[in-house]
């Protein structure tokens, strides 16, 4: 079963995934159309600045068990067994924000959604692009990521690849670095800038 796997070390903070996510969750389906829609479609992946100002793509991990699910006062959060996706039932959600208290990653937002009930804010988070995946598409954030920070693959495969990369780096066979040189340079510059500012 494929999942969105996040590789934060590769994120350059371009926020393309946020735009693609908001577009994928708009009624119009195109970026420019989405900007004109009301309520405004909003991203469900959030690129924030990490400790050293590096990009950090933050999205729902679809935890198992999911703390948001057990904290939901309205019984509005459930898991789709076939895909493992944790979903918020927009009809049952009462916008109480108990899930914000429960989520250890801070990835749930509260606002009106183009597909939600009219004039009523609800909890909104990543749905693994379920509507795209049933059509044979991959999640929008993965499709648009050019840095390889978001991939669509089986977690076991991602884990094996990562293990190999780490092993190679440890044994000095680092001729193919696990982070591209350009990304590493960008992160280095951001960190240096920050350290200079804080001096």
């Amino acid at each position: 079963m494929n999942q969105v796997v996040v590789h934060p070390e590769r994120c350059v903070g371009c926020m393309q995934c946020m735009l693609a996510c908001a577009t994928a969750h708009s009624r119009n389906g195109t970026l420019f159309g989405a900007t004109l829609e009301r309520p405004q479609p909003k991203p469900r992946i959030h690129v924030g600045a990490g400790r050293f100002n590096e990009g950090f793509p933050n999205r729902c991990r679809h935890c198992q068990p999911a703390p948001c699910q057990s904290a939901c006062l309205a019984g509005a959060i459930n898991r789709i067994a076939s895909t493992g996706t944790v979903m918020i039932n927009l009809d049952r959600c009462i916008n109480c924000a108990s899930c914000a208290m429960a989520c250890p990653y801070g990835v749930i937002r509260f606002h009106e959604d183009p597909f939600g009930p009219p004039n009523r804010p609800i909890a909104v988070k990543c749905d693994n692009c379920s509507n795209r995946v049933v059509k044979g598409l991959i999640p929008a954030c993965v499709e648009v990521c050019k840095a390889g920070a978001l991939t669509w693959e089986a977690v076991d495969d991602a884990m094996r690849r990562k293990n190999r990369e780490v092993a190679r780096a440890m044994t000095g066979e680092a001729d193919c670095p696990n982070v591209p040189a350009g990304v590493a340079l960008l992160k280095f510059i951001k960190r240096a800038e920050l350290e200079l500012n804080e001096r």
Binding site: P8, G48, A49, G50, R51, E54, F56, N58, G106, V107
Partner: peptide, 18 residues
Amino acid sequence: RLPAERLLRPGFNFGQLL
């Protein structure tokens, strides 16, 4: 690991704890 003031900032997020 972060100074508490960093946790007060508007942009604070999970990534800063890593």
